[in-house]
């Protein structure tokens, strides 16, 4: 039953903790930033399109503005020219916010150990979930998102407040 911790007979009352209720809401309607970089962005589009249908996880609404989104999926390689832009986009997002590094390039720069790329987006912004693959299959992206949901369900409001 999702968030329900206990049910008091047929009184029509459900008790739960605030943590669980808030985290349930946060995982159920997460708005990702409409933001793609390279090959992984195409797989991200596949995940959002008809076949895999990310709206099953409340994520069909991609916001083009970072101020309206709470998840940024770094889908692709991060060049040195792009890194400051990503940092600024991240800074513009309102808390609470999460980051998924999709694919090998965003996680650790993958096959490119060269002058052009930042060696993993975690050099620029903090990352919650890393997804391996070049590019990851849509199933892998969905698994990454569910892993993020799991992480969020463990969050405590008290920690956010500090």
């Amino acid at each position: 039953m999702g968030i329900v911790s206990s049910k008091l007979g047929n009184l029509g009352v459900v008790t739960t903790t605030l943590d669980e209720a808030v985290n349930w809401a946060r995982t159920g309607a997460m708005w990702p930033l409409l933001f793609g970089l390279a090959c992984c962005a195409i797989e991200m589009m596949s995940t959002q399109a008809s076949h895999y249908d990310m709206s099953r996880f409340g994520m069909e609404l991609n916001r083009a503005s970072p101020r309206q989104s709470d998840l940024i999926i770094i889908a692709g390689r991060v060049s040195r020219k792009m890194a400051p832009v990503i940092r600024q986009l991240y800074d513009q997002m309102a808390s609470p916010k999460w980051v998924i590094a999709m694919g090998d390039c965003a996680s650790c720069s993958g096959v490119y150990n060269n002058y052009a790329l930042v060696q993993g987006v975690d050099e620029v912004i903090p990352v919650d979930v890393y997804i391996a693959g070049c590019p990851p299959r849509p199933e892998q992206l969905i698994h990454g998102i569910l892993t993020l949901h799991e992480k969020i369900r463990g969050d405590r409001i008290a920690e956010w407040a500090t």
Binding site: A38, R77, S79, K81, V85, L117
Partner: peptide, 9 residues
């Protein structure tokens, strides 16, 4: 913004 250095690699 997506320069990857593929030719050099």
């Amino acid at each position: 913004y997506l320069h990857t250095g593929i030719e050099k690699t």
